[in-house]
Design a protein around this nucleic acid. Sequence first.
DNA 1: CCTATTACTCTCCTTTGGGTAAGTATGAAT
DNA 2: ATTCATACTTACCCAAAGGAGAGTAATAGG
Lengths: 145, 145
Amino acid sequence: MKNPLHNLESRELAARLSAAEPPAEIDPKLDALVREIIERVADKWTMLVLEVLEEHGTVRFTRLGELVGDISQKMLTKTVRQMESDGLIIRTVHPVIPPRVEYTLTPLGHSLSRAFCGVWIWAEQHYDEIERSRQSFRRRSSEEQ
Amino acid sequence: MKNPLHNLESRELAARLSAAEPPAEIDPKLDALVREIIERVADKWTMLVLEVLEEHGTVRFTRLGELVGDISQKMLTKTVRQMESDGLIIRTVHPVIPPRVEYTLTPLGHSLSRAFCGVWIWAEQHYDEIERSRQSFRRRSSEEQ
DNA sequence: CCTATTACTCTCCTTTGGGTAAGTATGAAT
DNA sequence: ATTCATACTTACCCAAAGGAGAGTAATAGG
């Protein structure tokens, strides 16, 4: 039992289970899998690489780094390796010197990019609202002191 | 200059700028803002809390932790504080003993939840594909050794 | 007087994220 | 012989994420 918030005595737990929401409707195993994917995929570097490849098509390593913006080689390598392992991108190595490695989205990658599209649009539409909210929060916090 | 991948000599940079994509079409300041929001909001705890509140409506602190799953009190507090500051949730403190604090989504929170909906659906639809991809990646990695 | 309750906060600790800088492989060009 | 190019890898380091567990405030009920 890893979660300290789960330390309920069994009678209380039983009471809650019988009282609360209907039959729970979701398979816990599938839920765990989906969560793991969400955790992995909802990573800022992954999202940024995804967006760059969606916009620019096939791109080489160094250029990809430039387009993503402040990312170190280490993080870029790590991110693309993970994305390759997850089947989001394909990595093509041309056996020439100097090396030439190209990255491009798979259909799965494109579909994820489309799924994230709504979040990008949301961010564009609401960043000013968030900014205002943060300011008033700071004001409230300092006032109540 | 923070990004090592940006160390291009100026002539090469100029060449690339003139050769590459059209006029760049996006305001860099807005782009930076949007990125910052994405980075903050595309956080696993934020996404999970968002989903729980979307599904269960108004929820108290301890219950929220149970519903999210393995999250420590520390992280839960930090996450909800940030979400409150960003205007995604409202936190209602009832001045009673023992304390009673309720969390609920704002309209902004609901809209973000809707934006993320596509990602949840994507994860549900593709987790098996990702799993297969990871397995074949591991197989390939160990083979080429 | 003691206990239970809730939503925290605080301290201590380990793990992960992530930056910097240097090194590597290899052939073509100077 | 040296330099350059590219896509890394490795070693070292610091900061942030995050878990474990104890403590706290204040009151109602035994």
